[in-house]
Design a protein around this nucleic acid. Sequence first.
DNA 1: GCCAACGTTGGC
DNA 2: GCCAACGTTGGC
Length: 219
Amino acid sequence: MPPKKKARVSKRAERSGDDGEKGKSSTAKRKAAVPAKKTETSSEFVPYSRWLMKSEPESRFENGIDVKFGIEDLKALPDQTSCWDGVRNYQARNFMRQMKEGQLALFYHSNCKEPGIAGVIKIVKEAYVDHTQFDKKDVHYDASSKPDNPKWSMVDVQYQRMMKRFIPLSELKGYHTQHLSEGGPLKQAALFTRARLSVQPLTAEEFDFILSLEDKEPQ
DNA sequence: GCCAACGTTGGC
DNA sequence: GCCAACGTTGGC
């Protein structure tokens, strides 16, 4: 399961102990878990079912370790499957814990020449303990996390397909700006409103809109 | 390489 | 429990 890899996020996160989900007390709550949207006609919560996950496709060394993990790297693995370890941000972790097997996510290339949406992946294993938090050699080792009460989780994802064409961030940003003034599906996309979140939810409208761009001319 | 935005830490 | 300092994310 554990190919070395990806998702760059803080590296210490030390205490703060919080756990995000016991929700009630303490600090670090700040903007805890954004609640899923409600439907118009009922007060039922509709859980998110689409996601966007960021990873770096270009080599970058952290403590002597290359954190490069682009969609091509995922595609090259046995079963085209990998665990998504190394997430060290509570909101991102909490979103991963909401993921269900079979759900789709957009694979986003970050911190690179051309940031943007590279392809589609599928959640093939729901959240479980991220072993790298206990590994002193790992870039994302977290000395504050104890095996009897692990802080960090990961999911497994499987490559589905490349986008028919790469959708650059710049293009999405153009639509975001446009939708802000005229209305439209990317108006509130987390990619822009929560820029630094490495694992974020997408509404069905956002997800479908982004996929629809594949068949349009680059803007 | 710069640096704005923002999450985390830790003193008080 | 506030908030300034610090460190990271990630576009440009």
